[in-house]
Design a binder for these strands. Sequence first.
DNA 1: TTTAGGG
DNA 2: CCCTAAA
Length: 471
Amino acid sequence: MNEVKEEESFVPPIEDETTEVEHLLEEPENDYVSVDGVFCSNKENTGKFLDVKDFHDEVEFSLRATNCGLDSYITPEGGDALNFGVLDGILDEVDDMEGLDSMDGLSVACEDFLLDMDVAQEVSALDIGLCNGLRLGNSSTDSHSPGYSGSSNGAVEMSESSDAINPEFNCNDDSCQGRIGPEDCNCLSRDSIKVDQLQNSSDCVSLLSSRNKNNPAAESRLGACPTQKRQRKPTRRYIEESANMDSSHLRPEQKPFAFSSKKHVNFRTPDQLHNVESTELTSVPVKDCPEETSIKTLPTPHLLGRQLKKHEPLMEDDLGEYSSASESEDDFVGRKPKKGIDRRKHQRMWTLVEVTKLVDGISEYGAGKWTDIKRLFFATSAYRTPIDLRDKWRNLLRASHALKLHKGEAEKKEKNAVRPLPKSLLRRVRELATIHPYPRNYTSRSRPVPTAKKGASISFNGRNVRRRIDS
DNA sequence: TTTAGGG
DNA sequence: CCCTAAA
């Protein structure tokens, strides 16, 4: 009963995404008639929610046609060989960046949908619906991953639905008839291969759909609806982000799929997002190295580099002091990006644990051996690059003994700090600072460097010094 | 490729 | 956190 109700709410999204997919799957040779059997089996589902939702006739039609068409393509005896051939050809033409972009566009489109929904409830239902409608009965036997439960997300579902084009996506009549529960959606998610392919299939979606615009048959069948929807794809966010992507090139080690998978998680629906956040943000009694234990969800944790955008690291949970939040590798902050605030790139708060590790590392290797420290102390923290470590250290120095502040001032600042460091840690930082003078010739009290050197050498370091000289 | 320094 | 220059 619940399920039925849920299904109703999916209609819009299904309709939208499917139309795209439909485009893509549309082949002149294929006729609806040929898939009659499938159609019938599908009809049950389709008809059900259409009745309730009271949609326009065209929509209904195209929706049904969509399901029908998709099924036909994916059914073994259907035209899958034919279509895959086509897809292959297209896939070859697509380079990685395009793949990412498309991917992104898809996600964005999804998000739009989510946002369009009036009621949160509907949103959650939507997720399942997306899966339901598009997934074409992925009865795929093996893909239920027990580990990944309960945190399915709209974007993932939707995008992966386009996976339907994949050969490995097997659908048959039984599965289509069968009820599709929420778990079914989840089953899709964590397969790296799938995600990888997903990217490609997304490309197909865009490419093929545009390509099919020239196909009168397809056009007439779909009516105005699809063309209208089409425009949805490249949203502002998509454009912005793709622009960003351009300026910062992918580093060699960054696998597209890692990127896209991340991307998706950003679009969890509110209630599902919940799940993610709880893993990330809940404060747990400080285990010494929580990070160490928590990485396995992602195929290649350390490949997820800077490129992964994390939004809004700072949340209530984290505000007080260095929270002892455990950080899993893929935990990144999965807040739905509020509109327009993306200017600030992703930041990730340093936890007390991390700072401690950093200090340990420095005390062992000395400041400057950032890669070593990273390797040994932050091996599991994919998001902390050696540069990050250095930056943090720099900040720690500033925060602790302060380069130019007088003692009183420094302490005062300390007190006002949003996230005050524990005294012990602070003390260690100061100690280390004297042992490993990081900003090589930092000025002020500690005797080491500047002594014999004259002004010239000093002038090399930062504006602090310069200002000093000036005044 | 890593580090340093500036923004 | 990002970018760039230098090593």
